[in-house]
Structures are given as structure tokens and as C-alpha cells.
Amino acid sequence: MPTSLEYYVHVGFALPSLGTLIAPIDSSGSTGTFGQTQLFAFNVTEGADPTSYSLGSMRGYTVQASSTADFHGVEVEVLTYDDGSLNGTISLQGLINAGTNEIAIVGGTGDFRSARGYAIITFLNSTATVALYHHQLFFL
């Protein structure tokens, strides 16, 4: 198993893969979007350019866990990874917000079997249709 990995996640806003599974608990808006749950499936690439080498996909869900206007979500992600040398899945989870986040690596399969460690997720930029995130994974 490697000691670290890095890749880029391209979050498409208008894609059907970013859909609301469960609506907010209070639809009047007095608690923000608390409880809203979204499923996602995004492309993962070697570089920041969306046409760079594809490494796989990031799938999972986020549950809004704040009843105020600031965003805090509980996120569960599964990275399907294949760079031609390493192949498998990596499971990540943690509390995220609008800034840079550290979440836990809680397992994996294939070349990442029993993976443990942490990931640093950094927002880089966005357009009207896509947000770009840099993920750095560190294995213990």
C-alpha cells in the first residue's frame, strides 16, 4: 500500500448524480437545510484538468448536519481507484464544511485492503457548472 495518494474530484452541479435523496427536515427554512441528504457520483482525475487521466470515481452521500446558514455535513465517500498500478476502493468519512477538511480513511479493498489514515480535502475553484477539489490521502 502506498503512503499517500492525490487526485482531483470534479463536482458537476447540474448532473443527475448530485440529487437530493431526502428533503430538509423543516421545509419552512427556519433550520436551513438541516437533514437534507444528497447522493453523488463524480469523476476523479490525476490532474486538475477534467480531460487529464481518469483514475476512477467518487460516490457517496452527504447529510446536512447544521441547522444554521453555515454548512456542516456528514459525508461518506467511496473512491473507486485504478491508476494502472494500484486498484481498489477506499472508504472515507467525516464532518465537512465549506473550508479545507480533514476526514478519516476507514477502510478499503483490493490494493487498499484495511486502509487507515486521513484525507485532506481542499476546495480549489468553481465555475457555474463545476467545482474542483484536491484530495490528498495519507495512509498510516
Rank of each mutant, 00 (worst) to 15 (best):
G107V: 01
A115V: 02
S85W: 02
L55H: 08
A14K: 09
Q93M: 14
T31S: 14
Q36H: 05
G32M: 01
F71T: 11
L39M: 00
S30K: 13
T109M: 06
T37A: 10
I96L: 04
S54D: 13
T37W: 01
V130E: 15
L21T: 15
A41H: 09
T129R: 04
T100I: 11
T68Q: 12
S126D: 06
V74D: 13
I120P: 02
Q93I: 09
D26K: 10
Y53E: 15
V44K: 07
P50E: 13
S28Y: 02
T100E: 15
M1V: 08
P24G: 00
V44F: 01
R59L: 05
L86N: 09
P50S: 12
H135R: 15
T20Y: 04
S66N: 13
A23F: 13
L15R: 12
N97S: 15
I22V: 08
A65I: 05
S4V: 03
G32F: 01
L95T: 14
S52K: 02
T129A: 02
M1S: 12
A119L: 04
G56R: 04
Q136R: 14
A23Q: 14
T89F: 03
F138E: 13
L132I: 08
T33H: 03
G88L: 01
E6T: 13
F40W: 02
Y61C: 08
S27G: 09
D70Q: 05
V130T: 15
F34N: 13
T31Y: 05
H72A: 12
T109L: 05
I105Q: 11
L15I: 05
H134D: 07
Y61W: 01
V9L: 06
S91W: 00
N101Y: 05
S28G: 10
D82Q: 06
S30E: 14
T31L: 08
M1C: 11
I120A: 11
S85C: 00
N97M: 09
S57C: 09
L18F: 13
T89D: 11
N101S: 09
L124M: 03
A65N: 11
R113P: 00
T45W: 04
M1P: 09
L39S: 05
A14P: 11
T37R: 01
G60M: 02
L140C: 06
Y61P: 00
V130P: 06
L39F: 09
I22E: 06
G110A: 02
